[in-house]
Amino acid sequence: MNFEAVKAIYIFEMARMRRTLLQSVVSPVLSTSLYFIVFGAAIGSRIEEIDGVPYGSFIVPGLMMLTLLQNSISNASFGIYFPKFVGTIYEVLSAPISFLEIVLGYVGAAATKSLILGTIILATAHLFVPIEIRHPFWMLFFLVATAVTFSLFGFIIGIWADNFEKLQLIPLLVVTPLVFLGGSFYSIEMLPEFWQKVTLANPVLYLISGFRWSFYETSDVSVEVSIAMILLFLALCLGLVWWIFKTGYRLKT
């Protein structure tokens, strides 16, 4: 195991976050605050409690997941896309490191950034509404598992993308709608029965539901199913990354 290389990539990637502190940290905090003002205060005041949880508190896990998913994907996809774009990827490919070590460095850094952001969002939310975490261990499990899984997914997108448009395509056209429709801001019980069934096909629902359960013990689907789903995504992404490095897809000619 080439620990020095993993460390080098990790530190190098984290340094980029420090350089872009303003856009990395300030903008998610700002947008979360805006969500609270719009959904929590303006709309939330007209919504009663959901499953015994005040609406403002109810949306906190969903908001964290929204930020976590978006940032994990964008951090990781940009982290690997940029060296491809400027050509410095040659150095990573010619270094004595295995695919596992490359992934550990890049995905580790991207997931760390998302976790830091998730924590900041939680702290920001705490200023607006009361929050309770009934199952801290599972809350942490969902947080870390989601950050890692979607950083892996972002890494895959970054390798697949051969221009900046493609880099934005999946997050914008697929992930954001799935997050919004996955129950970030509502319980699916509020939907007509037909749409409830449709929503069950949305993978993000399981993440948000499980994560919310760790806070308030209320969920749209059972927590076991949520755990199984997140592990399934993780395995899928790992499998894809393994295949990418085995075949050299979009990396080696």
């Binding site: 080439n2 020095e4 080098a8 990539i9 530190i11 150095e91 990573v92 270094a95 004595p96 490191i97």
Partner: peptide
Amino acid sequence: DTVSYSRGLFG
């Protein structure tokens, strides 16, 4: 930083 990074990358 970039030169130090290269050294680390090679273990």
